[in-house]
Design a protein around this nucleic acid. Structure first.
Length: 850
RNA sequence: GCCGGAGUGGCGGAAUUGGCAGACGCGCGGGAUUCAAAAUCCCGUCCUGGCAACAGGGUGUGGGUUCAAGUCCCACCUCCGGCACCA
């Protein structure tokens, strides 16, 4: 009795061991690259990638297997379709939780990380995914981060050539004549794509540390509730802003969901306008502003500088000094959130200084306010209260003049921000907004007062963290103030042991405590200290998909031939939470590597799919506190990995957010059981006696071929839920037959295999095959056999169904009309009237209009 | 506030992109099998009325286009996600 039942636990263990010991899923480069390979170049390659996870102490949750199953189905399907498939896995293993645990317990983050990786790998293996584990990468492995550091040096040792719009080695940077050594060094440093800068960070004086944005809630530290201020600190930055245009353009060749592309475009935030210089009355200074509405220049009735603007100090008159100083201090105390969130009520201070509007010579007051951001544009604006809602609000509150310069096309109350016709604008009056923008840019340029300009919201990437558990920067700060980079031969620069993992009280990172490591003497005898910041978690994930191609290479990040062969990633699946940052950063790194000739394709990810979130049974986000978290381990023990995989795919479209329902797992489990019993005799464990070498009847043949077709095309379009439902229909049909042709059974097992590989392998074996089905060719369908001989048509009278008729599939329109009109219910519905028009949709319906 | 996405049975969801709404699964009801239960199998299951054949209604709401609308157009409502003074 026992030996014939579907014992999923035993079967799954057996086949996982089989795959592992035989390296079934090992990905080989073709023989032209790796002579040991049996692949040749005639086979197409397919690179299917998961967003690698952070190895959390919580282990897997049911959201992980969702995308991993999806990519696994595609990987297994593509293998059967004859593709050479690269399907790797790895760990984004630097990160805060392990470091916080280290602060609390003293356990080295590497220990915690390794333990978590081991646990999660065990969980992932228990789902039977077809990863090539020989290619596993771990961002915290010095053999990996050696190359992360190497890429950082590429940024450091490159500059951006504006005319060619690409990065080049820093040695090629044209240096102006007549610079002193120091000036020359500064000139070079100012052009590096990795550079140091004072940048505002979230500094918590009470905790003595810098906090990440998500650790600051309403201006207070998440832990302890202490005030957090913005403080300028020396930081490493990456010059991503040089790539704005390229990052925008590159999106055109990405087959991504348009919503994700839009998110990226909005994040980069390109806007077209003009820069205009306003003279400060009584000073030899100009305030440069950026505006998208240079056509409203005549309506500029005041200016606003951000509190951090460099001219504030210079131009503020004595009588306003105290108030301005106080305002600046208050603004500095506010977090970013406070400055934007409670923005309803505008604040500001008059500096006492005046500027001259270049188009009409008017004297206009200069204010400061924190509604102007130092980090966008020039940190200063011309305020046009008649046509900008923020300026309108400010002007109303501080009783500043409002002058209309754009006449709305239709009567309008309040602040009009749309396009119209210019009024009160001197010689430009009467122009449309669009015409005006062109003319004024020309005029400004001719007067040397400004020019057309483009601005982006995207800012340079703050690339350093005051943390221990991250990649160390391969940088030394010398005693004389010079900063030098290590050479490639000195890599990896390995994280040192430290006494404890807390930051120092002064905000210096924990690495400042590693005295032996910190102090260095260069080969030329100069002394210095190492950089103590570390890289952010994003760093390792910017290029891991490249390392998978050549994970053990000690001499290069990856070899050229392998990169040329595997790239780009054909399918990338992961969570929508990475829609902007990870994908943008990875694209940015890729463009640098492309410019320097290390990668052959300009965009790394050809196709992208975001899986949706899985909610708890209660339709709420899964969380420990709600107690609605589903543990995959438990599901696998109770129902098996195949049922787990199948259920996650059957729940609904991959991209949709959907609630978990354990009873649904039972449903797909029943399906697998049914499929098993269709093939295996439960009493004997032998093939079921109904499984015979026999010709399938017409209905079975048709359904089989329909099923092969639908499952294949559904996999191609990532519609796994409907593929599974089609397989259920097939099993419901064939399971009822007393004769189940072996040929049909075998084809079914093969198409089931990508979804439920363990049971499929076991059935394949019991059907008499001795090898894994991994590389069996995907069954073909015959379009002729799919066609129905007879079709049922609905017959409508005035759009209402009155009857159904059965006609030959190739019946002519006239034959169909005749048969439809002959129907008794149709005759009744027509009640003797003549048909005015008869619409025949072949194989669908007939509609009679009377 | 702005930008996306979505509203279909008791539930998850299908619906050749304008052509029979509710495939498939869950749940529920009934039956078979069983000493009994589990498991399995069969039948039913959008709503309303009817014993029934059948009739009428039905895809968030209201309007429109069309022989025909879940699908297209206009207005609105609700939920979810993202952004949030970017000049």
């Amino acid at each position: 009795m026992e030996k014939g039942v579907y014992n999923f636990n035993e079967i799954e263990k057996k086949w996982q061991d089989y795959w592992e010991t035989r390296r079934t899923f090992k990905a080989w480069e073709p023989a032209s690259i790796d002579p040991a390979s049996t692949w040749d170049d005639s086979k197409p390659k397919y690179y299917v990638l998961d967003m690698f996870p952070y190895p959390s102490g919580q282990g897997l949750h049911v959201g992980h297997p969702e995308s991993y199953t999806a990519t696994d189905i595609v990987a297994r399907y593509k293998r059967m379709k004859g593709f050479n498939v690269l399907h790797p896995f790895g760990w984004d293993a630097f990160g805060l939780p392990a470091e916080q645990y280290a602060v609390q317990t003293g356990t080295h983050p590497a220990t915690t990380t390794q333990k978590n990786i081991d646990n999660m790998r065990r969980q992932i293996k228990s789902l039977g995914f077809s990863y090539d584990w020989d290619r596993q990468v771990d961002t915290t492995d010095p053999n990996y981060y050696k190359w992360t550091q190497w890429i950082f040096l590429k940024f450091y040792n490159s500059y951006f050539d504006e005319t060619e719009q690409k990065a080049k080695p820093i040695e090629q940077l044209p240096i102006p004549d007549g610079l002193s050594d120091d000036e020359e060094r500064k000139f070079i440093d100012d052009h590096r794509l990795a550079y140091e800068s004072e940048a505002p960070v979230n500094w918590c004086p009470a905790l003595g540390t810098v906090l990440a944005n998500e650790e600051v809630i309403g201006g207070l530290s998440e832990r302890g509730g202490h005030p957090v201020i913005r403080k300028a600190m020396r930081q490493w930055m990456l010059r991503i802003t040089k790539y704005c245009e390229r990052l925008l353009d590159g999106l055109d060749e990405c087959d991504w969901p348009s919503s994700i592309k839009k998110l990226q475009r909005d994040w980069i935030g390109k806007s077209i306008g003009a820069e205009v210089d306003f003279k400060v009355n009584g000073y030899d200074e100009v305030i440069r502003v950026f505006t998208t509405r240079p056509d409203t220049l005549f309506g500029a009735t005041y200016m606003v500088l951000s509190p951090e603007h460099r001219l504030v100090d210079t131009i503020t008159t004595d009588e306003h000094k105290d108030a301005v100083k106080e305002y600046i201090e208050k603004a500095a105390m506010k977090s970013d959130l406070d400055r934007t969130d409670l923005a309803k009520d505008k604040t500001g201070q008059f500096t006492g200084a005046w500027a001259i509007n270049p188009v009409n010579g008017e004297n206009i007051p200069i204010w400061i306010s924190d509604y102007v951001l130092i980090s966008y544009g020039t940190g200063a604006i011309m305020a046009v209260p008649a046509h900008d809602e923020r300026d309108w609000e400010f002007a109303t509150k501080f009783e500043l003049p409002i002058i209309e310069v754009v006449k709305p096309p239709a009567p309008f109350e309040g602040c009009f921000t749309g396009d119209g016709t210019a009024v009160n604008s001197g010689q430009f009056s009467g122009l449309t907004t669009a015409e005006f923008k062109v003319k004024i840019a020309e005029w400004l340029e001719s007067q040397n007062l400004g020019k057309a300009a483009v601005n982006y919201k995207l800012r340079d990437w703050l690339f350093s963290r005051q943390r221990y558990w991250g990649e160390p920067f391969p940088i030394v700060h010398l005693e004389d103030g010079e900063t030098v980079a290590l050479s490639q031969d000195d890599l990896p620069l390995v994280l040192p042991e430290v006494a404890d993992y807390k930051p120092t009280g002064t905000g210096e990172p924990p690495l400042a405590k590693a005295a032996d490591w910190l102090n260095v003497t260069l080969p030329d005898g100069r002394n210095g200290k190492r950089e103590t910041n570390t890289m952010p978690q994003w760093a390792g994930s910017c290029w891991y998909f490249l390392r998978y191609m050549d994970p053990d290479n000690p001499d290069a990040a990856f070899t050229e031939a392998k990169e040329k062969y595997w790239m780009p990633v054909d399918l990338y699946i992961g969570g929508a939470e990475h829609a902007v940052l990870h994908l943008l950063y990875a694209r940015f790194w890729h463009k640098l590597l492309h410019d320097l000739g290390y990668v052959s394709v300009p965009e790394p990810f050809k196709n992208l799919v975001n899986q949706g979130m899985i909610l708890g049974q209660d339709n709420q986000k899964m969380s420990k506190s709600r107690g609605n978290v589903v543990n995959p381990d438990k599901i696998i023990v109770d129902y098996g990995a195949d049922s787990m995989r199948l259920y996650e795919m059957f729940m609904g479209p991959l991209e949709a957010t959907k609630p978990w329902n354990t009873q649904g797992v039972e449903g797909v489990h029943r399906f697998l059981n049914k499929a098993w019993r269709m093939i295996v005799d439960e009493d004997s464990g032998q093939l079921h006696s109904a499984v015979q070498k026999a010709q399938a009847d017409e209905a079975t043949t048709r359904l089989l071929h329909q099923t092969i077709k639908k499952v294949g095309s559904d996999i191609e379009s990532i519609a796994f839920n409907t593929a599974i439902s089609q397989m259920m229909i097939f099993v419901n049909h064939l399971g009822r037959q007393n004769v189940r042709p072996k040929d049909a059974i075998e084809k079914f097992v093969l198409i089931l295999a990508p979804f439920a590989p363990h049971i499929a392998e076991e059935l394949w074996r019991r059907l008499g095959h001795t090898d894994t089905l991994t590389y069996e060719p995907w069954p073909q369908y015959d379009p002729e056999l799919i066609k129905e001989k007879e079709v049922e048509l609905a017959v409508q009278v005035l759009g209402k169904i009155k009857d159904k008729i059965v006609v030959a599939a190739d019946a002519s329109e006239d034959q169909i009309k005749e048969k439809a009109l002959a129907s008794q219910p149709v005759q009744t519905a027509m009640s003797g009237k003549q048909p005015k028009k008869i619409i025949v949709i072949k194989s669908r319906l007939v509609n009679i209009v009377v």
